[in-house]
């Protein structure tokens, strides 16, 4: 589904964000991309939805050479790749329903498809009852669920999440991870960049670790800190103070 070969990304200011990345992600996988801030997690995701082109190497997404894709074809790639961000990127003057519908409307969907598609994803993310509310009337978790609904409404094959729980408390974090897990069970490939140790360690899925733009660990059913790697990172300790409630245990129950 996703394949990177010899990918290097150097920004115009000389920063080497990615350095010789080789990576294969199978269809339907659930993968964590971990590492410190500035190690290239977001850069790697940006390559996948063609916000960025690699300086060297090839990027293939769903059989398409993304690095060679013509600008005019990029919109069609993006309809197949949903993206979710830490800051939700919702339109504050549109309701939940309108925010989700927007993704369909601006891609030229027929109103019949909008009327069918929006309630379906709002149902999936559990926001059907709040569809008329505006983003600032919602909790962070609800806002993120709206953003996920928007990313899903075009039925993408891949869902990319850049720190999706970065602004959320533990309870909401678990809700969102639970939701992403359910989405993955429906067949969508999910790739999550995060530095939330708890989430990664509880879910025990494939973990790819980036350090200074290189892959330093890649484990199936891995932990945030690779076996034999450094011990708990002090920078990430505050997150670990949160107590783990009963919601967490429901993460893998579905």
């Amino acid at each position: 589904m996703i394949s990177l070969r010899g990918v290097t990304l150097v920004y115009p200011n000389g920063t080497r964000a990615l350095d010789g990345i080789d990576l294969e992600i199978a269809k339907g996988s659930f993968v964590f991309l971990v590492g410190h801030s500035g190690t290239g997690k977001s850069s790697l995701l940006r390559l996948l939805y063609r916000e960025q082109r690699p300086s060297r190497g090839s990027v293939t997404v769903d059989g398409i050479r993304v690095d060679k894709l013509r600008r005019s074809k990029v919109p069609y790639l993006r309809r197949n790749v949903g993206v979710v961000f830490q800051d939700y990127k919702l339109l504050v003057d549109k309701t939940v329903w309108e925010n989700v519908a927007f993704a369909l409307q601006v891609t030229g969907a027929r109103s019949r498809d909008v009327i069918r598609g929006v309630p379906r994803v709002l149902d999936l993310v559990g926001l059907a009852h709040k569809s008329r509310m505006f983003p600032n009337e919602l909790s962070g978790g609800e806002q993120q669920r709206t953003a996920i609904a928007r990313a899903l409404v075009n039925n993408p094959k891949i869902l990319l999440c850049d720190e999706p729980t970065g602004n959320l408390d533990p309870a909401n974090t678990n809700d969102i991870m639970d939701l992403l897990h359910r989405i993955n069970l429906k067949g969508t490939t999910v790739l999550i960049a995060t530095h939330n140790v708890l989430v990664v360690d509880r879910m025990r899925r494939r973990v790819i670790r980036l350090d200074d733009g290189r892959i330093t660990a890649d484990e199936e059913r891995g932990y945030y800190h690779a076996a034999g790697g450094a011990a708990a990172d002090t920078a990430e300790l505050p997150i670990m103070r949160y107590s783990v409630g009963p919601r967490t245990s429901s993460l893998l129950s579905e």
Binding site: V74, P75, L77, R79, V83, L91, V106, T107, R150, N154
Partner: peptide, 12 residues
């Protein structure tokens, strides 16, 4: 930015 993200064509 969101339009571009969700795949609206530049013409649209």
């Amino acid at each position: 930015a969101i339009m571009q993200l969700v795949g609206a064509s530049s013409g649209y």
